[in-house]
Nucleic acid binder design. Sequence first.
DNA 1: TGAAGTTGGACTAAATCAGTCGTATTTAAT
DNA 2: ATTAAATACGACTGATTTAGTCCAACTTCA
Lengths: 135, 135
Amino acid sequence: MFQLSKRVEYALIAIRHIAMQPNSRMHTTKEIAEKYQISYQLLAKVMQRMAKKGYVVAHHGVNGGYTIARDANTLTISSIIQAVEGKPNVTIIQCEAETPENCIIHGTCTIKNPLVKLQDNINKVFDQLTIMEMV
Amino acid sequence: MFQLSKRVEYALIAIRHIAMQPNSRMHTTKEIAEKYQISYQLLAKVMQRMAKKGYVVAHHGVNGGYTIARDANTLTISSIIQAVEGKPNVTIIQCEAETPENCIIHGTCTIKNPLVKLQDNINKVFDQLTIMEMV
DNA sequence: TGAAGTTGGACTAAATCAGTCGTATTTAAT
DNA sequence: ATTAAATACGACTGATTTAGTCCAACTTCA
C-alpha cells in the first residue's frame, strides 16, 4: 500500500538519467534498461507515455532515442506519476478519483472533508520535488 | 495507486464514530456497519486489529462492543494505517518496505535518496492528522 | 442455556500490476 | 532500395493484492 509502482520508479530512474547528461545527448531505451537492469519492454512503455506528455522528445529510427524536452526544474514527481499512470493525480480517496456517486458510502461518508485536506498536503509534497533535485 | 484501502477507510469511519460519542458508550460492529452501510465482516476484522493495537477496547459477550481506549488527540492516521495494514509504515519505496536486497535494482538504484526525503515528508503529513481533528 | 457479542482462519472473486510478445512504423546509413 | 536500429502500441499471461464471504470458535450477560 502506498508504494510507487515500478512504472513510476522506472520513469524516475530514466528521466533522471537523461536529465543528468550533457544537453541533447540521445539515450535509447535499451541503453537505460541495461544500465539499470530493468525490463526493457516495460521501460519502453513508460518512455512512450512520457513522450506523449512532452516530457521527453522521441527520435525515431537509427541513432534515435530520447532527449529531455523541458527544464528539469519544471518537472515534478507529480507530473511523472500523472504521465505514466494516466490518472489525474495522486488520489488517496476513492470519491475524489472517480465521481462521488461511485463511492459506495457516498451519502453516509463522514471522513471525506478531513481526507481532502490530507490529500492537499500530499499533493504539495509531490508537487515540490522536481527532477532537478534528483540529479 | 496511492489510494487508501477500504480497510483503512472503514477504520477511520469507525474510530471517528466512536470518538465522537459521549464517553464510555459502547458501539457494536453491527451498529457501525449498518449506520454507514459497509461490510460487517470486513469491519469486524478491522476492529479486531485496532483492538489488538490497543486503540479501542473490546468488550465481549452480550451488551459488548467497543469503546475508545486513548485520547483521540494521540491517535494519528499513521497509527490507524499501521494497525489495519500491519506494515511498519506508509512506505512508498520498495527497498524501504522490505530489505534493500529484495529490491531488484538495489546497487544500481539512483533515486533512493531523494525518495527517502519524499517519504519523510509524507510521513509527516500522515503523522499530523489526528482522529481528534476528524470529529 | 441461549442470545449477543468478539476472534480468527480459510476461502473466493475481482482488480491491479509486472512483464512478455508480436507487429507496425520511422529513419539513418550503406 | 535495403537493412538495421529505434520508437509505438495493443493483446496477452501470470502473480499479487484486495474486498468480501463463510464458518466455527470463544466470551459474557441475563
